[in-house]
């Protein structure tokens, strides 16, 4: 008898559900939808306001459907809105943020990867103590380190500069990246490192050829985390910036304080959304790996 001759029975059987189970399901989804609506509400309001004419917002209500659609707010927010009496839109602040965030993310991730490797796979004296010291930085509230950083930056002659703020983020961020990378790399097999040692590879060669190629999941997690965190960070951004250099999060605060006294909800909303785009783009590009990376090693 060939396979084709074999009678295949009906394979569409499902486990039967009772009426109670179905009702439970409906109730569950209803609750979830309400909660999702609650969370999405602010985003929806901002997104809608960014395409409404400001007079409509002021006349009707802050929360409402657009009666007239306009994209003018986006243009204004990007290039002509006035912030602290300079009418350049958020464009220069957006690029200032970019110039600071990208190097700070790349450098703190690189340092975290090296730290993680040295702390787990290289015989380093007191590795555990050093690791604990580094991770204390994760739990220190930023307000605690604000003043020491201000003093340190002025000593270094980097006060209120892009380099200074980037340095703060690199060093603060290294605590996080080290924690992530160390916890990832501790699960890499020791035998690989020993094999590389016997194959004659030194510290950097083992790192570059063996460890790094195995680390994309944690690199993606770390980059997303660092980029989002540094981009969205507000306290350091406000404290360690000046009119010469100001990240977008700090600049947004000044956007509404217009000298005519009229609240500009329209391009204000657009500016907020522009500021939110880069982290979202990063997350959409790497989000799949982000979740996978965070749960790495949980099931094996």
């Amino acid at each position: 008898m060939t396979v084709a001759d074999t009678h295949i029975p009906d394979l569409t059987r499902r486990k039967p559900r009772s009426a109670g189970q179905i009702a439970g399901r409906v109730a569950l989804y209803a609750v979830l939808l309400v909660m999702a609506g609650f969370v999405l509400m602010p985003l929806a309001v901002i997104a809608l306001n960014s395409v409404r004419v400001n007079e409509d917002i002021l006349r009707e209500s802050f929360i409402g459907w657009p009666t007239r659609l306009t994209l003018e707010n986006w243009g204004t927010a990007w290039s002509t809105a006035c912030i602290n009496a300079s009418c350049t839109g958020v464009k220069p602040y957006f690029w200032a943020s970019m110039l600071m965030v990208v190097p700070a993310t790349v450098i703190s991730t690189a340092v975290g990867l090296l730290n993680g490797f040295a702390l787990t796979k290289w015989r380093m004296p007191c590795a555990d103590v050093i690791f604990v010291c580094i991770t204390i930085g994760v739990f220190l509230p930023p307000q605690v380190v604000l003043l020491p950083w201000a003093i340190a930056l002025s000593w270094l002659g980097l006060a209120k500069s892009l380099t200074g703020l980037a340095l703060v983020h690199i060093i603060q961020g290294t605590c996080f990246t080290t924690l992530f990378c160390r916890n990832y790399m501790i699960n890499l097999p020791d035998d690989l490192i020993r094999a590389a040692q016997i194959d004659g590879a030194g510290f950097f060669r083992t790192f570059w050829r063996i460890v790094l190629p195995l680390s994309p999941p944690i690199i993606i997690v770390t980059v997303i985390w660092q980029f989002t965190f540094i981009w969205n960070e507000f306290l350091f951004a406000v404290t360690f910036s000046s009119s010469d250099f100001r990240p977008i999060t700090a600049a947004l605060m000044s956007l509404n304080a217009d000298d005519t006294g009229v609240s500009e909800y329209g391009f204000g909303s657009a500016a907020v959304l522009i500021a939110a785009i880069p982290p979202l783009v990063i997350y959409f590009l790497g989000g799949r790996y982000f979740v996978r990376g965070l749960t790495q090693g949980a099931v094996k």
Binding site: D191, L192, A196, I198, A201
Partner: peptide, 29 residues
């Protein structure tokens, strides 16, 4: 150090470098 001894070790776990091809695994040393 291990690299200066001119010895070879075959591991229980094989410890093949997962991101390299067989050829690269063999030539790495």
């Amino acid at each position: 150090s291990p690299k200066d001894r001119n010895i070879a070790l075959v591991f229980q776990s094989y410890a093949l470098y997962p991101t390299m091809t067989v050829r690269q695994n063999i030539t790495f040393g």
